[in-house]
Design a protein around this nucleic acid. Structure first.
Lengths: 105, 105
DNA sequence: ATTATATATAGATTATCATCTATATATATA
DNA sequence: TATATATATAGATGATAATCTATATATAAT
């Protein structure tokens, strides 16, 4: 569970990928439009999009030679919601399983 | 801006650190109580706590030989809030700066 | 059919980081 | 003061990942 959330956060923990998602928050865009916005190479963008798609943060469709990408807002919300719950004292807290004072309080 | 959020997410993108924060969401705990819950070494915990403290995700105070840690919920909420805004079509979206159709639509 | 455009894949490189062992420091107790 | 407990630091190592160049693939247009 922590592993899974951590995996998602790893995907998001890259400034370029965050910016890609932000760009897609307005509109569906093709890879070439995204590429024009950045300074890295085309294979690098392709790699980022593959990673984002594998974790379903974006969805893609083919349109001629172009690949159109759109943000999967639900998935992003899912992640932020899980992250919020980490800080909440309720539910997924494992404090009860924790034996406090083992090192003497 | 994306760089800064990405830095925070990098800190959170570790299952052990997520679990540490979750443990601290209930209560203030000392390092030794936390350590008892994990399988990694004491220096590894010390390293994690240092990282979390550097980014102000936890706050620490000395109590005798012990170091007590507590979760900084405000900081965590700040991060989740920033992450949410990535998916929002409004405000910090850079779509306007993006010249669409440079690769011909 | 050939050429141009858009994207994907392969393989290499460099940097970062989670973890370890060994050791140091600091406090409390006997 | 000597010893035990709690934590921190130093340095090394192995794994992961962001990026690159070179190349392949697939579609559109001439």
């Amino acid at each position: 569970m922590y592993q899974q959330l951590s995996d998602y956060l790893k995907i998001l923990a890259d400034p370029s990928r965050l910016e890609i998602l932000d760009l897609l928050s307005c509109d569906e865009l093709c890879a070439c439009d995204l590429l024009a916005h950045f300074h890295f190479s085309q294979p690098t963008l392709s790699h980022h999009m593959k990673v984002l798609a594998r974790y379903q943060l974006v969805q893609s469709r083919k349109n001629g030679t172009k690949t159109m990408y759109r943000l999967n807002k639900e998935r992003l919300e899912e992640i932020t919601s899980q992250l919020s719950s980490i800080g909440a004292a309720t539910s997924p807290c494992v404090c009860d399983q924790l034996e406090k004072g083992t090192c003497e309080t």
